[in-house]
Design a protein around this nucleic acid. Sequence first.
DNA 1: TACTGTGAACTAATTCACAGCT
DNA 2: AGCTGTGAATTAGTTCACAGTA
Lengths: 242, 242
Amino acid sequence: MSDTGSDAADAAARGTTAVEVVRTLPEASVARLPVYLRVLSELALAGRTVVSSDALAALAGVGPAQVRRDLAPLGPRGTRGVGYDVVALRDRLQDVLGLTHEWPVVIVGAGNLGQALAGYAGFADRGFRVAALVDVDPLLVGSSVAGLVVDPAERLEDAVLRSGASIAVVATPPGSAQAVCDRLVAAGVRSILNFAPVLLVVPAHVEVRDVDLSVELALLAFHEQRRAADLPLDLPVREGRA
Amino acid sequence: MSDTGSDAADAAARGTTAVEVVRTLPEASVARLPVYLRVLSELALAGRTVVSSDALAALAGVGPAQVRRDLAPLGPRGTRGVGYDVVALRDRLQDVLGLTHEWPVVIVGAGNLGQALAGYAGFADRGFRVAALVDVDPLLVGSSVAGLVVDPAERLEDAVLRSGASIAVVATPPGSAQAVCDRLVAAGVRSILNFAPVLLVVPAHVEVRDVDLSVELALLAFHEQRRAADLPLDLPVREGRA
DNA sequence: TACTGTGAACTAATTCACAGCT
DNA sequence: AGCTGTGAATTAGTTCACAGTA
């Protein structure tokens, strides 16, 4: 590569300056980073200072090669022969995932699920602050849930603007989810965690993640049924005509 | 294909008998089947009798080619030039997913989340019956949630055996999840939907599906952060030494 | 020695594009 | 004409196996 290298690469080769290189992170890896983060937080709390890809893999429930593939592009490379620095890696993950500052979140729907989410400790731990909890039901509005007063539905836009929330949770019945979603998007929300079993239609710049609990159970039922019949993933199919 | 075909294929060619053929269903397709089922159920309810892969794709939020790939192995093939028979396809999906009979489910943990799950209509709709709701907290035990009396933790095994549940939901704090899981498995549970943010260690014949709500939010935060900075999935990484 | 980082091989999943029915 | 079903091409993801390094 002689003299075809970039200025930056040359500088690095000369050992003078650190270089900014851009590494791409596969989406599949991104999806596992929060899990590593959780494990590393626990390890750090337990006083562990280094961890090998093998150990981390075991704790995260994946293969060691995968851990290395996932982490290598992040930069704070582990030390060969030793492992990864627990705290440095944890901090890097927090940084990459954007969990270094607080994220205000608006939850729409204060039914059972909305209330459960509002009180979920795992959110606060990771920097997600429930800025508002909104519902249409006059019986719920004004009541106190997890230290929050439930706001009436009219205040939805208000809550989003006031809190500056760019993330919202939809925990309404399926029938009202799309309308709520539209209002959230109009108010400036760009990321939605949707618990309603419907496809939310949103503009391209808005991201929706669906959590459909009955889908999860259905998948368990499928595999359960397979296991009971001792079949693999194959289906007997009637082919041809009588 | 002349005379190289199998006996079964010959029979089919002669048009005498239907043939049992085994088609393999990719795991990724399986994960989408419950979504198709939901859409088809809605369409059937709305009186729609046929649906094209294009229409179904739009409603399910995937591409039309993917719909066809996913459904083709199931057998009740659509009619070329027309589309899929809504009711026939819905029934076939229910059958394949094992949702033709009731599945008793035991929920462990009657906190906010456990209560929300116990009352979740989407479960009952799909044939999941909450057979028992169990908790350690003496304040909750005996109280009534969604028409169910909360059972004490000691009754866990009892509840599993009595109901014959092979599916359970773990909605306990992370600290007690593994112990609960062990007891469930010992009692005969083979599929677990886990809401606790920990890796459950189970024997090979047991399947666990994790739903980690803070992971979902973290992924939204990641993309949100990217979008704000207008970066793609790339990371600037400091490479080389000073 | 004991570990990471990564090219290379492999496997899975998606998308294209069109043949084949109805 | 209008659709499905599917080979073929493409892309993404995983795993292997080992070179490189502290």
